[in-house]
Amino acid sequence: MQLYFLGTSAGVPTRTRNVPAMLLNLQHPTRAGLWLFDCGEGTQQQMLATPFNPGRLERIFISHLHGDHLFGLPGLLCSRSMAGSPLPLTLYGPKGLREFTETALRLSGSWTDYPLEIIEIGPGKILDDGLRTVTAYPLAHPLECYGYRVVEHDKPGALNAKALKAAGVPPGPLFQQLKAGKTVTLDDGRQINGADFLAPATPGRSVALFGDTAPCAAALALAQGVDVMVHEATLEAAMEEKANGRGHSTSRQAAQLAREAGVGRLIITHLSSRYDEQGCQRLLDECRKIFPSSELADDFAVFCV
């Protein structure tokens, strides 16, 4: 998987950072496999600087309905339609997402020529596409807000074909059943359990993608043990009271969560427009003092998971 950051500012854009949006490229060989998380104003313009276009989007996940995370959605939906994309698109987000989307399209005389499904979510598993699951966790913010945990299914271990041949199992269709962990019966009556001939499964990759939030109980469950955690660091550590009072977190609080949850890497984003390049580097430095495997997201930065 790859993370493409389209917007990394908080609240308002700056000269170098647009408002929040992030692509998750699932790198699946046969599916569109492109998901968007949040869609601030100008997101479709930001996509022009990437290898992707809105027609490849399969799913869009909205964390909450504040404008900096949402106001780019109507334009992107319409442009996708005018470009002639026939592929279905599914939107996920809190209650009110349907009303916002349908009202914006209706009042502007717009429509979509592709199948559009809108799913208003609550806490819990919201998707299992056979390859991965997505679970929504409620966060601490003035509006209903969610973070999303994306976890790939474990990949089955390799089949020990040499051992099977030594056991008298002929290559062919039986191997496919055994690779799936099934038990097969041979012509001589013996039963062979595929699980006995499989190497240990490879754990699927996992990411925790936070919406806006002050520290909260659900955050630890959302982030626990993931390979990559993407978390806001709106303000510096000295401004903790102000950040938390508005439903946000500081750099230090993001790093403390990463350490407590045992994540592999922390990527900070959603940085206040008060910080220039040097200020953003200070936020990163504050994180690294607590959690060394911290990285700073800039617009158009790409991270592999």
Rank of each mutant, 00 (worst) to 15 (best):
A214L: 06
A214W: 03
A214C: 07
A214Q: 03
P215E: 12
P215I: 13
P215H: 06
P215T: 08
C216N: 02
C216K: 02
A218Y: 00
A218V: 09
A219E: 07
A219V: 10
L220K: 05
A221D: 15
A221R: 07
L222R: 01
L222I: 02
Q224M: 12
Q224A: 15
Q224W: 08
G225M: 11
G225C: 09
V226G: 05
V226W: 01
V228K: 01
M229R: 03
M229V: 07
M229D: 12
V230Q: 07
V230F: 03
H231M: 15
E232V: 00
A233M: 05
T234D: 09
L235N: 01
A237C: 10
A238S: 15
A238P: 02
E240C: 11
A243R: 01
A243I: 02
A243T: 03
N244V: 14
N244F: 08
G245D: 12
R246T: 06
R246C: 10
G247R: 01
G247P: 02
T250S: 13
T250Q: 03
S251G: 04
R252C: 12
R252V: 13
R252Q: 14
Q253F: 09
A254M: 11
A254T: 01
A255K: 04
Q256K: 12
Q256S: 10
L257C: 09
L257M: 09
A258R: 02
A258G: 11
A258N: 04
R259V: 06
R259W: 10
E260M: 12
A261M: 10
A261S: 08
A261K: 02
A261H: 06
V263M: 09
G264R: 06
R265H: 14
R265E: 14
R265F: 04
R265G: 06
L266I: 07
I267C: 13
I268E: 10
I268W: 04
T269H: 13
T269C: 15
T269F: 10
T269V: 09
H270P: 05
H270A: 14
S272T: 03
S272H: 11
S272E: 04
S273M: 05
S273R: 08
S273G: 11
S273V: 08
R274D: 15
R274A: 13
R274M: 14
Y275F: 14
D276S: 06
D276A: 10
D276I: 00
E277R: 03
Q278N: 10
Q278R: 08
G279A: 09
G279F: 01
G279P: 05
G279Q: 00
G279D: 04
Q281H: 01
Q281T: 00
R282V: 14
R282W: 09
L283M: 04
D285M: 10
D285W: 01
E286R: 06
C287E: 05
C287L: 06
R288Q: 15
R288N: 08
K289E: 15
K289P: 00
I290P: 07
F291K: 06
P292I: 12
P292S: 11
S293Q: 15
S293F: 05
E295C: 07
E295W: 05
E295S: 13
L296N: 03
A297S: 10
A297M: 11
A297K: 00
A297P: 06
D298P: 00
D299H: 02
